[in-house]
Amino acid sequence: MSRSLVLLSLLCCLPLAGGLRCYACLFPAISPMDCLKFPQECPAGQLCLSSTAESTRGAIGIKIYEKSCTVTTQCGLSGQKYTAGYNFNYSNVCCNTDLCNAALPVAAPTWRGAVLCLLPPLYLLLV
């Protein structure tokens, strides 16, 4: 068994060891549109955040969506904040897998990459 082949097989696992990747909004979005989001790598110890803020004034209802990386103390928070002349009720939800704060569930499970990465070294051990 070639050491360089084993090393090359194990190198495929390196991207899995990076920090958590989350969507972040370029700008907060007003319902029914989702924000213009892009993936970013979070600092160590942070989670993915999806935040929703709702306000009603008379017949006008506004719902704002935000996505980002956040510290754990922001997870599960809800309350009120005042901005742009409106009182908003907000709630924060956190998750801890890559790109888990998308509007729609991520199609491919994140464990799939780990399984595919481990197949070459396992094959080499069996041969």
Rank of each mutant, 00 (worst) to 15 (best):
T97V: 07
Y90Q: 02
Q46K: 14
N101K: 01
C22Q: 03
P15T: 06
T73K: 09
S91M: 01
L99R: 03
A24E: 11
T72L: 11
L49H: 06
D34W: 12
P121C: 06
S91T: 05
I60H: 13
A107M: 12
S91G: 06
R112T: 12
L8S: 13
S4K: 13
L47Y: 05
L125T: 06
S2P: 13
R112V: 15
P120L: 09
G19A: 04
L77H: 08
T83G: 06
T73Y: 15
C100T: 00
Y82V: 13
C69D: 01
L124N: 04
L36I: 08
S51M: 10
A59P: 04
C95N: 03
S55T: 14
V93T: 10
L11H: 03
A53N: 05
T56K: 13
G113W: 01
S51Q: 10
K37C: 04
T110Y: 04
A108R: 05
L5Y: 14
L77Q: 15
T83W: 10
S50A: 12
Y123M: 11
A102L: 03
L7E: 04
A59Q: 14
I64W: 00
P109C: 03
V106K: 07
F27W: 14
V6T: 13
F38P: 02
V127D: 13
P39G: 08
Y82N: 08
G113F: 04
S31R: 00
V115W: 09
I60A: 12
T83C: 02
S91V: 02
G19T: 00
L5E: 12
P28W: 04
K67H: 15
L126Y: 12
T97I: 05
C48E: 00
P28R: 04
A84H: 10
A84M: 11
G61I: 01
G76N: 11
S55Y: 10
L10S: 06
P28I: 01
N96P: 00
S50C: 03
L116R: 02
I30W: 08
C75K: 03
S4E: 11
L124K: 07
L77C: 05
I30A: 12
N87P: 02
C117G: 14
R21Y: 03
L119D: 05
P105W: 03
L8E: 09
W111L: 09
V106P: 00
